[in-house]
Nucleic acid binder design. Structure first.
Lengths: 338, 338
DNA sequence: CCAGATAGTCGAAGCGCTTCAACTGGCTTT
DNA sequence: AAAGCCAGTTGAAGCGCTTCGACTATCTGG
C-alpha cells in the first residue's frame, strides 16, 4: 500500500503539499504540482478512504435506501438506483445500497456512524417512521416520494395528483364518460404509499369536475387477478370505455384480456397507463401514457442532496410536471346506443 | 458526536476495554461488559466508520458492480442486488453500489482506496476487461456469471449449459422435433455475455444428441421484433411446435402473438421459458420454465465472499443445477400429417 | 524603499478507533 | 511453596489523512 507520505518523500515535498495538490484547497506552483502528480502516477498511489473519512469527517458516500419489496415498479426502482449511482459518481460520491429491511435502524446506523454524508430514501410512506429521525440527523436527506407532512424535508416526486387529473382530462376530452381505474395491489394502499393514493385523488377530483364516472379496482399484477378485476368492472359498469392503469404489471394482462373478449383498443376501449415510457412503447399496443421519469427523479435527488452538502439549496418539494404522450391505445369514445 | 473515549470515561474503564466489549476479541468480565453496554446505550454511542476502517483496515463494505445497461433481466438484477444487500447485512457488511459505467476504473478505485473489503461483479462478459485487475487485487472477489477463463476466480452462476440441455430434453420427451429458440437481443450476443452463449450451446448440443432441429433467432423484447422473429420462424420452419424463450421480455409478446394466430398453447405449441419463477407464474399462460434463481445467486455470492474474507473457502466455480418446473405451457407434440 | 499583501510550502496536531505488549491478581500444578 | 497459567484490564502506539498556523519569498502600492 502506497501512502501519502511515500508520495511526498518520492516527490521531495511535505505530506501536506501532496494533500493540497490532491484537494486543490491551497495554491501550488505548477512545477511542484507536476512533480507530485508524476510521483502519484509512478507509485500508483490511491488515497485511503478510511483515513480520509476520519480526518475530514466526510466519507463521500451517499446512502440510498430502496424498498425491500418487489411487489411494484421494479424497473422504476432500478432505473432510479442507476441514475442515482451515475449522477453521484459524476459529483464525486459513491452510493451505499440499503434495503428497507432494517427500517429506522438503518437510518440510525448510517447517521450515527458517519458512514454516509447524506441519504436518499425511496418508497416513502405517507407517515413514514424514518422521518422523525431524518429531521434531526446531521446528514442532509432527500426523499423520492412525498410523505403526508413535508415540513423541513426535501422531496422529489412526479406530481401524481396532476398525473391522475391529466389522465382523466385526456379521456374526458375524447368523450369517455365511464372510466375504470386498474390500481395497485391492495397491499400497496394498505401501506399508505403516497403515489398510489395521490394518483387516485387526482383522478377522482378531476373526474368529478368533468362529470366522469370513476370505478377504482385494486389489482395484483397477475393475469388471474386482472381477469377477475376486469370481469367485476364490466359487470358493475358495462358502459365503461376508458381505462387508467396504474399498476404496470397489469398492462399486458389487461391488453390480452380485452383482445380475447373481442374489445378493440382503441376503437372500443381506450387505455391510458402510468408507467415508464419504455414500457408503454413496448406493449402489444403502443400505449398512451404518462411517463414516470425515473432517471430524472434519481438525478434530481442527487443534485439536491449535493447542493445541500455544499451549503447551497434549502428544503423544498420538487414536483415534476406529468407529461402525457398520446400513442395508439386511446381514441374517441365509441357511439353507444342512445 | 459521542466517541469511544467518552464512553470509556462514563463507564470508568479504558478505551481499549470498550473496544474489546464491542469486538468481542478479548474476554471481558460480565459486570464490566454490562457497565460499558449501559454507557453506550445512555450516551447513544455509534462507532465512527472512518476511524474503524483506518485502524483496522477493514471497511465492512462489499462493493457490488451492476451493469449499467437495462436491456435485459432487470428484475433478475434487482433481485440479485437486494439479496446481496440483505445477506451482506446479515453478515455485518454494507453494500456499495457501483455501475458498470466506470468499467475497470471502478475496480481500481475500490481496490486502491480500501473503500470496500471485497467485490461482487455481475454481468461478467466472457473476456471481461476487469478480470486481470481482480486477479491481483488485495480484495477477494466473486463473480456472478462465468467468464471464459475461470482460473483463480470464484464464480457463481446458474448452469446455463445444463439449462439449455434441460429445455431440449423436456421438449424432446414430449415428442417435439422442431424447436425455435427466441434469444436475447443481438447486442447481448455481441457483448459476449456468457449465459446467453452457454444456454444456446446447451440447447444445440442436446438437440443434436436427441435429433431435434433447432432454429435460433435473437429478439429484442418488443412486440414488433417478436412479431418479426415469429413470422420468420414459421416461414422457415412451418413444422415448429416447440419454443424456448430466453429473453423474458419476449414472453408476453410471444404468447399474445401465438394466440392471435390461432395457435393454442400447449395444444399446438409448447413454450418453455428461462426466467424467474415469478415471471413464469404470472404470464397469461402459466409457463413451464427453468427458474433463474436470482435470490440464491446473490446470497451465495455474499456467502462465498464472506468465507474468503474470513480466510475460509477457496477459488471455486459454483454452478447451480437448473430446475425445470412443468406448468401449463408445454404438452405432447401434436400429431402432424404423416 | 518599506509596509502589507499574496503565493507557496511545511510541521505538527489531531481525527476516533484497533491492537499489541505488558501488567495484575487469583488459580492450578507439581 | 514456587512456578506457571489464565482471565481481565490497561497504556500507548499507531492507522493515513486533513488542516491550521506559521514561515519564507516575492510582489504591490504609496
Amino acid at each position: 500500500m502506497v501512502t501519502l507520505a511515500e508520495v511526498a518523500r518520492h516527490a521531495g515535498v511535505s505530506a501536506s503539499t501532496v494533500s493540497y495538490v490532491l484537494s486543490g484547497k491551497r495554491s501550488i506552483s505548477a512545477p511542484t504540482r507536476e512533480r507530485v502528480e508524476q510521483s502519484i502516477k509512478e507509485l500508483g498511489y490511491h488515497p485511503n478512504a478510511g483515513a480520509r473519512a476520519l480526518a475530514s469527517s466526510r466519507s463521500n458516500i451517499i446512502a440510498l435506501m430502496v424498498p425491500l419489496r418487489t411487489d411494484m415498479y421494479v424497473p422504476v426502482m432500478m432505473e432510479v438506483a442507476i441514475a442515482v449511482a451515475t449522477t453521484a459518481r459524476a459529483h464525486g460520491y459513491d452510493v451505499l445500497l440499503l434495503t428497507g429491511e432494517e427500517g429506522p435502524a438503518a437510518v440510525r446506523r448510517v447517521t450515527g456512524s458517519g458512514l454516509a454524508d447524506a441519504m436518499i430514501l425511496m418508497d416513502v410512506e405517507l407517515e413514514d417512521e424514518r422521518l422523525p429521525l431524518l429531521r434531526d440527523a446531521r446528514q442532509p436527506t432527500v426523499l423520492i416520494g412525498l410523505p403526508a407532512d413535508t415540513v423541513g424535508l426535501t422531496c422529489v416526486d412526479l406530481d401524481f395528483t396532476a398525473t391522475g387529473a391529466l389522465c382523466a382530462e385526456h379521456l374526458a376530452q375524447l368523450g369517455h364518460r365511464e372510466i375504470a381505474v386498474v390500481g395497485e395491489a391492495p397491499a400497496v394502499y394498505e401501506r399508505h404509499t403516497g403515489f398510489a393514493v395521490r394518483t387516485l385523488e387526482g383522478l377522482r377530483g378531476r373526474a368529478r369536475e368533468l362529470g366522469l364516472r370513476l370505478l377504482h379496482r385494486p389489482c395484483e399484477g397477475s393475469y388471474e387477478s386482472m381477469a377477475g378485476a376486469l370481469a367485476r368492472i364490466f359487470d358493475e359498469r358495462p358502459g365503461t370505455t376508458g381505462f387508467v392503469v396504474q399498476n404496470e404489471a397489469a398492462i399486458d394482462p389487461l391488453l390480452s384480456l380485452l383482445r380475447r373478449q373481442g374489445r378493440a383498443v382503441p376503437e372500443d376501449i381506450s387505455v391510458v397507463a402510468v408507467c415508464p415510457d419504455q414500457v408503454a412503447a413496448q406493449a402489444s399496443v403502443r400505449l398512451t401514457s404518462v411517463a414516470i421519469p425515473a432517471e430524472e427523479m434519481g438525478r434530481r435527488a442527487v443534485e439536491l442532496v449535493v447542493a445541500k452538502l455544499e451549503g447551497r439549496g434549502a428544503d423544498e418539494v420538487t414536483l415534476l410536471a406529468p407529461e402525457l404522450t398520446v400513442r395508439a391505445s386511446s381514441g374517441p369514445a365509441p357511439h353507444t346506443a342512445p
